[in-house]
Design a protein around this nucleic acid. Structure first.
Lengths: 338, 338
DNA sequence: TCGATTCGACGAAGCGATTCGACGAATCGA
DNA sequence: TCGATTCGTCGAATCGCTTCGTCGAATCGA
């Protein structure tokens, strides 16, 4: 196990000099810098993370709270987010500590208390999310992925779902449709007050008013038999819609099949637009849509977390209370893809 | 920031006594144990992880190397594994540090060198995987998820894919079928020598010999148009199979649709069996299948990692070279579900 | 040429835990 | 009653690094 002393010995300098070479926080002559660097490379030296963070009270680790959906059901998008956040964090020289919601607030408290991480990122934040208030109370730097309701005092980012749904409906109107059906997310998600679910419906409603088109809003369901039923009655009604905007994207293969079964060719007879990412097995079929900007969101939430760490650090140094950096949410604008 | 000194002060004991209460490594009178515990609870004390691991050279962290599939494509099962491993690790009192393959072997070397983790778990290990030899050379405790080829000197676990494919074919034979088609994973995966892909084909072939049935093996493809073509020619051939065993499960919705389009009712006209987990959007439809035992595998690979840490620790204490604990792979047996 | 300034490197203190040896007090056997 | 154990607790050293104050040597201005 090579230590900073070994490096210093081999380079013929003091340990502190090695440290300064590593951190760059003091001026070092090019000559000794070279000597130290050579010793480091030859020994394959890596500073011990525990010693470093014991002394500096920074771990360069961000904790990521992954949602653990009850019932073993799992949204594949969460894994993508985790990966992208991990890479984004590395770009800021941070590592990522994974934790599932299994352990909830006590788990977060444990991480914060034991100094395992410098900040937390909470994924899949809901409108009313108990974790948010908990983190603010703990006073641990935290960034949120998802839309909380109201002024929460923590930085957050999300796709602007209200604008996304509205944009989707507007696209339908622009394409010339006057009878538009908006198939929202599942009832379950709407009842659970997930931000994307509630905001999506609101956006669709607003766009309905704005366009003057006849926009009907329908909750979806994860029960495919009932979903089929709803689609059938929707499509066989006398004033059936000519455009369908689908926010419940994971059911798209099923929905398209049902529409086809009802005698609609897509997009000739029924124009379909997706609000969200297409599932993996669309079989090469494309749809006009608004994609979830996963890597942008990951970048942004990581940036917010790193920012929160910096703010937290300066808050203790600064004279005035400060801390009133603007915490305006970072809502990413939707972009349509076709 | 409360430290062990604060706790000691409040409980009226020495810091070392507090430490012994926490670790239980020395006898403490019930009376003082109580006093210390009370002080801990009242102060909400958490030992500082960095100080602890600086002294003890154990971090209680396991690094998890998540595969980052090129092209942004993403297997949702990986996220499930990450979650399950995270929970399993917590049960052993370990946290999980996430790293993507983005940073590959150098990334692993960094984690090992800087003492950020006590062990690594490598996910999605392939038959010939450069990471395996690297980890053995580094001498870092490591457990593998996936089947490497040959004797690798590192503990690993996986579903017994060869047995799984064979079992699937046997099930078809038992159900009375004499013409069985085995739709393997994609050509791409087979060429990349992924364990599950190669072993699956081998198992199907073996079962073909054993049952005496006519088993034809077909590579799949992620190009759904070409896949449709292959299925059509398969089903319209004069001696079309009456049973279809599918290992390329993510394409199942598409495959079923193609079979239906070819005039087959399932399972009356065509008996279909899946080797692997059904995708999310099967629309409530069930199939007989062999499920990937995700949580069992997660438990097992975590156990192996914890074991590897223990072995590594005793190796330095033990007199004789030892270290020759049996590293027999833990192959989980397939189980059919219907 | 000499005191003042700058530059670059050094030494030592300390972060917060663990752990080993030591040490009174209580208990024991003869 | 007295030396030998046992029991429960304490004190001090230590892990590897960062950081602040210090201190020669080199540079500079007059």
């Amino acid at each position: 196990m090579t230590t900073i002393k070994d490096v210093a010995l081999r380079a013929g300098v003091a340990p502190s000099t090695v440290s300064y070479v590593l951190s760059g926080s003091r001026k070092i002559s090019e000559e000794t810098r070279q000597a130290v660097q050579t010793a480091i490379d030859e020994l394959g030296y890596h500073p011990r993370a525990s010693a470093r963070s014991l002394r500096s009270t920074r771990t360069n680790v961000i904790a990521l709270a992954l949602p653990r959906v009850p019932g073993g059901y799992h949204r594949s998008v969460d894994g993508r987010f985790a990966i992208e956040i991990c890479d984004a964090a590395r770009r800021h020289d941070y590592d990522v500590l994974l934790m599932t919601d299994q352990h909830g607030v006590p788990g977060l408290r444990r991480i914060a208390g034991s100094g395992l991480a410098d900040a937390a990122i909470l994924m899949a934040v809901e409108l009313e999310d108990p974790r948010v208030e908990a983190m603010r109370e703990i006073g641990f730097p935290t960034a949120l992925l998802g839309s909380p309701s109201g002024e929460v005092g923590l930085p957050w980012t999300d796709l602007d779902w209200e604008a996304a749904a509205a944009l989707a409906v507007h696209e339908a109107a622009v394409a010339g449709h006057r009878r538009i059906a908006y198939l929202a997310t599942t009832e379950h998600e709407i009842l659970a007050r997930r931000g994307y679910a509630v905001l999506g419906v609101a956006g669709a409603r607003r766009a309905g008013d704005e366009t003057g088109a006849q926009v009907t809003i329908h909750d979806s369901t994860s029960d495919m038999v009932r979903l089929d039923g709803r689609l059938r009655s929707l499509l066989t009604a006398p004033d059936a819609p000519t455009a369908l905007v689908v926010q419940h994207v994971s059911a798209l293969p099923h929905i398209l099949a049902a529409c086809t079964a009802a005698g609609r060719r897509i997009p000739e007879d029924l124009w379909v637009f997706a609000v969200g990412n297409l599932p993996d097995d669309m079989g090469g079929r494309e749809l006009p849509r608004i994609e979830l900007p996963i890597s942008e969101l990951a970048d942004e939430v990581t940036r917010l977390a790193v920012q929160a760490i910096a703010d937290h650090a300066t808050q203790h140094t600064a004279r005035e209370p400060a801390g009133h950096r603007r915490l305006s949410p970072v809502l990413l604008p939707p972009r349509a893809v076709s």
